[in-house]
């Protein structure tokens, strides 16, 4: 049997030239994400009176190529918070692994606590576990540290859940470690397209505190539709998460409903269309 690599499908050097070893990155400078490669688009979220709703579509793009169409970009943390990732998908997966470790450590730490759940509510999470505000703080330190090392994690992240005063919590952190909170938040294209719509319903904290769960979900779904209409790197399959005191309800296979593309026929002047 011929065991030479060329006989097993390797391109022959005399035909194709020698393999360019620079692709193997042996030696060379220390590598860092200098630009995102496989990316997820917008994440949007809005607070309501009993919690937070968050949504992101299931697409991971490679440039303009819709590369992976079943990528989950929302992840629950300790079943009390939700983290949504926009930006680089490999950095998201790194962070997800990291958050898994953190969640396991945290679960062990509070496993044997005698006063773990309050008497009146058996479903309540163990007291003292990292809440969404703590998690956001931690992620912001992580992201800021990486930007200081010139090795950023190329994401914008939304964190939803509750703070230490048990009030709904929603905040963002990006690849530079910039943090902010608002009654509604959106990353990427969502900041231009969805945020103005959500602000109509929750301009202030007081407005958000009046919003019901059904209203909030409806607004978010409407925003996902607008984003699918106008964002070329988006998908009509998406994940939606609702965080309340009872925990996280995450649905990862939602389909955009009641789309209307009737207007498309009336668009003229693009592409090969001549009349």
């Amino acid at each position: 049997m011929d065991h030479r690599p060329q006989a097993w499908g390797r391109p022959r050097d005399d035909v194709y030239g020698a393999y360019d070893a620079s692709y193997l990155q042996s030696g060379g400078p220390k590598t860092a994400t200098q630009s995102p490669i496989v990316t997820g688009t917008s994440v949007i979220a809005i607070k309501f009176k009993d919690g937070v709703v968050m949504a992101a579509d299931n697409l991971a793009s490679y440039g303009s190529l819709a590369r992976f169409t079943d990528v989950k970009r929302l992840r629950p943390f300790l079943s009390t918070s939700v983290v949504g990732f926009g930006g680089d998908v490999s950095d998201m997966q790194f962070l997800t692994r990291h958050l898994n470790e953190l969640a396991i450590d945290e679960a062990y730490e509070h496993e044997s606590s005698p006063t773990s759940s309050s008497e009146d509510d058996p479903n309540a999470p163990p007291a003292g576990q990292l809440n969404a505000a703590n998690l956001h703080k931690y992620l912001s330190k992580l992201m800021y540290r990486r930007r200081n090392d010139f090795d950023p994690l190329w994401n914008q992240i939304l964190v939803a859940g509750f703070d230490s005063a048990s009030a709904p919590f929603l905040a963002s952190v990006d690849l530079r470690g910039t943090t902010f909170t608002s009654p509604s938040l959106a990353t990427g294209f969502g900041a231009m397209l969805a945020q103005p719509i959500m602000r109509r319903y929750a301009a202030t904290e007081a407005d958000a505190a009046r919003l019901t769960r059904e209203e909030a979900v409806k607004v978010v779904k409407e925003c996902m539709k607008v984003l699918f209409y106008r964002d070329a790197r988006s998908l009509d399959r998406y994940s939606i998460a609702v965080v309340t005191k009872d925990g996280v309800e995450l649905s990862e296979d939602e389909q955009l409903e009641r789309q209307s593309w009737a207007f498309a026929e009336r668009i003229k002047g693009y592409g090969t269309q001549t009349v």
């Binding site: 620079s22 400078p29 200098q34 630009s35 010139f150």
Partner: peptide, 20 residues
């Protein structure tokens, strides 16, 4: 494949495309 840019920056050098 043959004229792909070669990475021959010195050890430790970084390309600063990221604006912090």
């Amino acid at each position: 494949v043959n004229d792909a840019p070669r990475v021959n920056a010195p050890e430790g050098a970084r390309e600063h495309r990221f604006d912090p």
